[in-house]
């Protein structure tokens, strides 16, 4: 599969702080690419550079092997963007909003009307077309937010957390919509905090943290790259500083992540577990919680970023 989008050594700094740094990734034609990373990782900043809202400090973005900053308008045609925040005129009806956004994409006349009707149907809100956005639920607003991005039938759809804060019914509808669009050939970049969505939708994923792409590949690839190991995650009762140090020094492959959680990667769960219990006993601490996880995207993410996906 050829690439539809190629990003090379992309860097963006705000007041000398690199928000995106030396980031390279590529999106293949027809795939759904999941971009995941904790809050403030730089996902939205990356997307804003792709859609031309802000200019990179360094690096290049090419679409169909051409630099997008050379001929901005040509690439805007290929690009649909669902912004993280709902960007609609809430005082206008759903239909009026879509008509307006369609016009901004140079659609008009019968074609515009047809596309508006199709997209309303696609997101399942054709029966509420003439109602004001302000009367819609969060999920319905998100659905119109998506409809407004696909009116012009983009080749690449970028979705920045399109399912934040909505009811399960709307979420399912949105996920199905994306599957449907993708099956008709639309490439998708999908940003989310929800691992199960990414696992369900995406052909490949990239984990981004502190503006850097840490791993990239199919979900199996990523899990493999991080190490096909189980994880023992535990926390201590008192979080005693010296006890923690003692434990860290005496257990191999141990890692401390947020909230004083400790993670040990191991291929031999049984042996490691016995070892852990012994060391903790020696340290004078006692266990508060303990979890044993077989390898998954969620655990990979936790290990690689030191943060869980959701707070």
């Amino acid at each position: 599969m050829p690439d539809i989008l190629e990003i090379k050594n992309l860097t963006k700094s705000f007041t000398n702080k690199n928000v995106v740094s030396e980031l390279s990734l590529n999106i293949k034609k027809g795939e759904v690419y999941g971009l995941i990373g904790p809050n403030g990782a730089g996902k939205t900043t990356l997307i804003n550079m792709i859609c031309g809202l802000i200019k990179p400090t360094n690096g290049s973005i090419t679409m169909d092997s051409q630099n997008i900053y050379k001929d901005n308008f040509k690439f805007k045609k290929l690009l649909g963007v669902v912004p993280q925040d709902i960007a609609l005129y809430t005082a206008l009806s759903a239909k009026d909003n879509l008509l307006f956004w369609g016009r901004m994409y140079n659609l008009n006349g019968e074609k515009l009307k047809k596309r508006v009707a199709e997209c309303l149907k696609l997101v399942g809100l054709d029966d509420r077309a003439n109602e004001k956005i302000s009367t819609f639920s969060g999920g319905m607003k998100r659905r119109i937010n998506i409809a407004a991005a696909i009116l012009h039938e983009p080749a690449l759809l970028i979705m920045d957390e399109p399912t934040v804060g909505i009811d399960p019914q709307s979420r399912n509808h949105i996920l199905e919509t994306i599957k449907q669009l993708n099956s008709k050939g639309m490439s998708v970049i999908y940003t989310s905090h929800y691992m199960e969505e990414v696992e369900y939708l995406c052909d490949r994923i990239g984990i981004i943290d502190h503006g850097r792409l840490i791993v990239q590949g199919t979900i199996e690839d990523v899990i493999l790259q991080i190490g096909d190991k189980s994880k023992i995650i535990f926390s201590l009762q008192n979080n005693n500083e010296s006890a923690i140090n003692y434990i860290k020094n005496n257990i191999p492959n141990i890692q401390e992540v947020e909230d004083h959680k400790l993670i040990v990667n191991t291929a031999n769960v049984h042996q490691t577990l016995l070892n852990i219990l012994e060391v903790i006993k020696d340290s004078g601490e006692s266990i508060a919680t303990i979890d044993i996880l077989s390898p998954s995207l969620e655990t990979s993410f936790l290990q690689i970023t030191g943060k869980s996906l959701r707070d």
């Binding site: 031309g52 690009l79 960007a87």
Partner: peptide
Amino acid sequence: KLGTYSRIRMTYT
């Protein structure tokens, strides 16, 4: 503030 300005800038406008 609403983001519609940014969104307009993402279109051909």
